[in-house]
């Protein structure tokens, strides 16, 4: 078994202080490995998104330790955490979060630009990534001209731009119809396999189950179940 890309040990996350304090995560211990598709399930308010944000260096754990490639993230300032996100993570959001003023390829190119890909290579690499997600005929379209599924695939292309080791997706199929959602789930699964990415998906969507190697269930901020998913069981 490969070394974990991301390791959480006894992680707590508490919002606020004193009487208004709210604990969102309790004692989370978890390893995320390359090439593994991990699905986080749980009811609303169970802490799934908070866990995703802690794993993605967007929030600091209140207690416990988060290690990225065996290096502790404790003590890093906001800019250092931002740099880690840029280098190691790709994000897919529920509402796509595409830049409406940029064409499809430009949305992907922004991520490449952030990762300092030479300007001359931006369009070529962006079109290549979109092509892999079946969007070769949509590269010059504006987000408003794309369907929900196409937008989410542009968002996935943007997330994998620059070859991050970890893809974190928050409810990526929530706004999509059944068939489109399955397509997005399959695309994320393929990423894990082909690119060796660690893919972590927060979802309520049972359609995701067949694509997951591992399914974690959260309740009240704690992992209550950890079992193989449909793909892992095969």
């Amino acid at each position: 078994m490969s070394a974990p890309v991301l390791a959480l040990r006894g992680v707590d996350l508490t919002y606020g202080e004193g009487a208004t304090a709210f604990t969102a995560l309790r004692g989370i211990t978890l390893d995320v490995r390359a090439g593994e598709f991990t699905l986080l399930l749980g009811p609303s308010g169970s802490g799934k998104t908070s866990l995703l944000q802690v794993m993605g260096c967007l929030l600091r754990a209140s207690a416990g330790e988060v290690r990225l490639f065996d290096q502790s993230l404790a003590g890093l300032d906001a800019e250092a955490l931002t740099a880690r996100r840029l280098r190691h993570f790709g994000f897919v959001f529920q509402h796509y979060n595409l830049f409406p003023t940029l064409r499809a390829w430009e949305n992907v190119a922004i991520a490449l630009d952030l990762k300092r890909v030479p300007a001359a290579d931006l369009r070529g690499q962006a079109i290549d990534l979109l092509g892999r997600l079946g969007l070769s005929d949509r590269v010059d379209h504006w987000p408003a001209q794309l369907s929900g599924g196409q937008k989410q695939r542009v968002a996935i292309a943007r997330a994998i731009a620059g070859a991050p080791e970890v893809i974190l997706a928050d409810e990526p199929t929530a706004a999509l119809d059944g068939r489109t959602g399955i397509g997005v789930a399959a695309a994320l699964r393929e990423l894990a396999l082909e690119r060796g990415c660690a893919v972590v998906v927060v979802s309520h969507d049972p359609r995701m189950l067949p694509y997951a190697d591992r399914v974690l269930t959260l309740e009240d901020g704690a992992i209550t179940d950890d079992r193989p998913g449909g793909a892992g069981a095969n």
């Binding site: 931002t82 740099a83 996100r85 993570f89 991520a111 952030l114």
Partner: peptide
């Protein structure tokens, strides 16, 4: 702001 937040989440430094 949502676009700036998205950039920030993607790892854009403040300078960007």
């Amino acid at each position: 702001l949502p676009e700036y937040a998205t950039l920030r989440a993607m790892g854009a430094p403040n300078a960007y």
